[in-house]
Amino acid sequence: MANYSESKSVLQSRLIAVGFAESDVTAILGEVGNLRRLAFISSFTPGQADEAPLMQVLSELLQRDPSISDKANWRAVFNEAYAIVTAEMKQRIEKVDAEPSVRPLSQPERAERYERQVKKLTGVSLRGPLEPADALVDAAVASYEANELKYIPWEKCVSKEDELRGEKKKDIKFTVEEASGKLRVEHKSPDLVADTSSEIMVQQALTRRALAMDQANLIDFVVMDQWTQRLMKARLQAPAESFAKPTWKQLESADRQLFTELREKTRTESFLPPSLPGCSLVILVFTIGLQGIVPRIPLSALPERKE
């Protein structure tokens, strides 16, 4: 599931919303599958006078003569699908903004990704502090849709709980439009920052990032979690004599370097579920060779502690 128009759950929700019966939804969903296919299911396009090709497809899908309400529902969902797909294609081709805004997932998409992950990761609790925020999942999905792996900083790995608390603290901003002179009221949510003040907080933040990337079909959770565990091991294990533990700044630099290597590995490859091609190998190499990336600091090189 790459984007909104290719989601099966989105089409299902729209068919139900326009008024199709449950049996008709099942029949249409099994053959069509998503909004992208629906938009090009016949030679008819919005604006043409003859919609016979479009209605012929509906008759074949339902295996009966559609009623007046069926035709009205079919027109509504078809025009919506055509508008969405053409808008996505236009945005992809033109790319007006150098840094396009992240598209929030629809509720059917979000629910489908979450339910699929719950069934897949039976031994992992996805509620509470480990559940990734909607904005975090949206950022991972945006990376998938752009076909370009982007680094997600630790401080951006906010939990769903913190995101819900932040929604209650929206800032109200009043602006006046120059052209019309009308007063506009804007509600802006504060920029949330994940708590990374301790080892357990960092581990939870990285786990949320791994879950978000798994939902976006970027990297399998099990593979990404191996990297999280290796970072925590490097931080928590007892250092050798005359050596100090790596600092959080060093570990974060290693984390960024991993994404740099993954980006180089996937430069000419498309993102294919369930994970990026070659990611397992790159993460394995980084996991084994972490000591070479994050060198330990000899105690003699550290400044003396003042009493």
Rank of each mutant, 00 (worst) to 15 (best):
V77K: 07
V25Q: 00
A139P: 01
A205V: 13
A83H: 10
Q257P: 03
V185M: 10
K156F: 12
K306T: 04
L231S: 00
E51W: 12
V18C: 04
A238F: 10
F44C: 10
L130D: 10
R14N: 02
P104E: 06
V202R: 05
G47R: 13
L62E: 11
P132A: 08
N34G: 04
G289T: 08
S67T: 15
L149H: 00
K120A: 08
K168L: 12
T175D: 07
E148T: 06
E109T: 07
V158A: 07
Q204G: 01
I152C: 04
G30M: 08
L206T: 11
Q204I: 10
I172N: 03
V77R: 04
T268Q: 09
P274Q: 06
A179F: 12
K169H: 09
L105V: 11
V18W: 01
V141S: 00
S43L: 14
Q12A: 04
S9M: 03
S59Y: 02
L258V: 02
D220T: 06
A52W: 11
P108H: 11
K150G: 04
L105H: 05
L126H: 05
K95T: 11
V137Y: 00
E304C: 08
L15P: 00
F286N: 01
A83L: 09
R36Q: 15
G33C: 09
T175M: 01
E161S: 12
G278C: 09
P108D: 04
G123F: 10
C157R: 13
E145H: 06
L54H: 13
K265M: 13
L258R: 04
L164K: 14
F286K: 01
L183W: 11
H187K: 15
E94S: 13
V141F: 06
I283D: 00
S42C: 14
P132H: 04
E307S: 13
P274M: 12
F243K: 03
A140P: 01
D70Y: 09
A240H: 06
V85C: 10
S69D: 13
R230Q: 08
S300Y: 08
A205Y: 04
K150I: 08
